[in-house]
Every structure is written in C-alpha cells, then in structure tokens.
Computed example of a mutant assay.
Amino acid sequence: MSWDSVPASAAVALYPPVAAHDAGFLDVGDGHRIYWEVGGNPLGRPALYLHGGPGGAATADARRFFDAARYRIVLFDQRGCGRSEPRDRLEANTTAHLIGDIEKLREALAIDRWLVFGGSWGATLALAYAQRYPTRVAALVLRAVFLGRQRELDWLYALGASQRFPDAWERFVAPIPARERDDFVGAYHRRVASADPAVALPAARAWCAWEDALIAGGQRPAATTDADDAALLTLARIETHYFVHRAFIEEGELLAGVHRLAGIPGVVVQGSADAVTPPAAAWELCRAWLGATLVVVPCEGHSSSEPGIQRSLVAATDRFCGADVGVHRAYGRDLDTGAGSHYRRRKK
C-alpha cells in the first residue's frame, strides 16, 4: 500500500457536464432489463461507473469524474432501480446477479477491459466484480469502501453511529416497537416491503433520513422529506433487501479474495470524517491489496460532492487514462440501442 495526499493543485473538482451519445436497455434475464448509457469519446479508454445504494441510480454528473475526451464512460442502473425495469423487483436481485449483469454489459458493448469506478455500495460491487473477473478489470477507483461485513452493518444499524448521532438515531428508532429493536434492518425491511403505502412510505422516509443524517454529519437534511417518494421507497426496499441478507456476501469474503486483484492497480479515496463507511475498512483493504494507493481526505465525509473527495477521484481517473486500460471493438449484436441513439456499430 502507498499513501497519497489530496491533490491541492486541481483548480476544478469535476470535468464539465457531458451528454450521453448512446443509451438503451439490455435484457439480463430473470425478467430484468437494465438501463445503460455511454458518453465521452467512443474510441476512448473504457470506464464503468457503479452507483451506490444498493437501490440508487446513475446520474449524468457521474460522467464528470472522467475526462470525456479520453474516456468512453459507461453508466447503468442496477436491477430494480433507476430506469431499469421492472422497478422495485427483489426477485433474482442479488450481488451475484449484479456481477453477472456487469459482465453481460461489458460483452454487449464489446469492451475487453475497463476501469471500474464505484463509491460506497458501488465500491463493494466493484471489488466483487473485479475478484470474479480480474482479467476484465484494468484498474479500480474506489470511494468510501464498504466490505459488507457484519461489523459494518452493526456500525450503521446497531451500536456505532448511534453513539455519534443520538438525536438522529432516536428519530430512526422511533417507528419500531421495542419488541423488534434487536434487528432494525429486519424490522424496516418488513415495513418497506408492505403493499400498504401507509406502512411502507413512512418507514422508507425514516430509513433514508437516517442515512442522509449520517452523510450530513448528524443534521436533519430537508432533502429527505422533499425527495420523490417512489425513489425513497425503491432505495429503502432494495437496500434493506440486500442488508437483511448481509449484502449476499460471505463474511470477510472481499478481504479474503484480495489476492485475486494481483496486478490490478487501484486508488481508494476515503474521507477521514466519513460516518457511513468509517476509514477502517479502506485501511484494511489497502493493507492487503499491494497495488492500491490510499488517499485519505482530511475532515471530509462520505459524499462524493465534497471538494477534496472530488479532486482526489478526478486525479485518480486522470492517472489511469494514460494507461492501457482497454481496447475498443465494435458494439455487440445483442445490445438494444433504443430510440434516438446516434452512435451505432462501427467496423472493427
């Protein structure tokens, strides 16, 4: 492991906005279709962005972590969330399914190897994919590492963050009867899965408000109450579905599998004040992964919108765009490019 400081010389944290030049849906089986977008240079270095959650969605701003003149930037919405179909579906929705979807998308886009970028849950999924398909990963850029271990779930939903933010924790605990408070993840999972909106929606709002409060340093952010109820419900349903099953990852699996990353370089960016995914997991990962550079950003937290975090992530993608991170080939034939797409298959 090596240790880098925050790149203070970066004048602008993110690259300018760039539109997608291609988009569509990919049928990944089990009744699921995932929505994907490609932006940047069609002949550039392939890069995949993995959104967080589980249950979040990719946004156009995700492309701004990459130099669009040098990267071919791929985004997609994971099963059951964002623009993927059907929304909220929990059947055939596990970490193994998502890993398979990533590989199907790579094949459909005819990419040999790509840089994989993910934060929080996206970092978990990036590590799981890289350990399953190491020859397809040229480099990893990770933020706010979450390894899916019980101690990390306990920090969030038992004894840990509750001690730092007792007022926000009190609001989180309030909707759950005393008899169910030995398992908050299970209690919330049962409620957000209810077909009755009067049960599911208040639980979803409370679940998401706790996470938002941790990101905001214990404050009560107004955005939670103003957010789209459907998006909150999707996030809470999928997140509790994954967490009640311990992220569908064996205890300690991602640390035990670090040897599979041999030869893959990586940058891990971690806020020192992150209250959602504290620095210990990033430290343990980078101690075991010899190819990793750990960048600790002082006094910043979990959010990818914090300026030091952004500068460090952009510095990481800039570092790797000069390497041989992938070879462009023609688009695969099984890719549905969707209406309005202007980038079509090219000759080899």
Score class of each variant (00 low, 15 high):
S5R: 13
V12S: 04
Y15F: 12
A19S: 14
L26A: 01
V28H: 13
G31K: 13
Y35Q: 03
V38H: 06
G39Q: 13
Y49R: 10
H51N: 11
H51D: 09
A57W: 12
T59E: 08
R63W: 12
R64L: 11
A68T: 02
Q78R: 06
G80Q: 02
S84M: 13
P86I: 08
R106F: 07
A110Y: 01
D112I: 05
D112N: 04
F117H: 01
F117Q: 00
W121S: 11
L125H: 03
L125C: 09
Y129H: 15
R132P: 00
V137S: 11
A139L: 07
L140H: 15
V145M: 06
F146M: 08
E152V: 14
E152H: 15
D154L: 10
L156F: 02
L159I: 11
P177L: 03
A178N: 03
D183E: 14
R190A: 00
V192C: 11
P197E: 10
P197H: 09
A198G: 07
A198P: 05
A206S: 10
W207P: 05
A222C: 07
A227P: 02
L235A: 04
A236Q: 05
R237I: 07
I238D: 03
F243R: 11
R246T: 11
R246C: 08
E250W: 00
E251F: 02
E253Y: 10
A256V: 00
G257V: 13
V258I: 12
L261M: 05
A262V: 12
G263M: 14
G266D: 01
D274E: 08
D274V: 09
V276K: 04
T277N: 13
A292E: 07
T293Y: 00
T293M: 02
V295H: 04
G308L: 12
Q310L: 07
S312T: 10
V314W: 09
V314F: 08
D318G: 00
R319P: 14
A323E: 15
G326M: 12
R329H: 05
G332R: 08
L335A: 03
G340F: 02
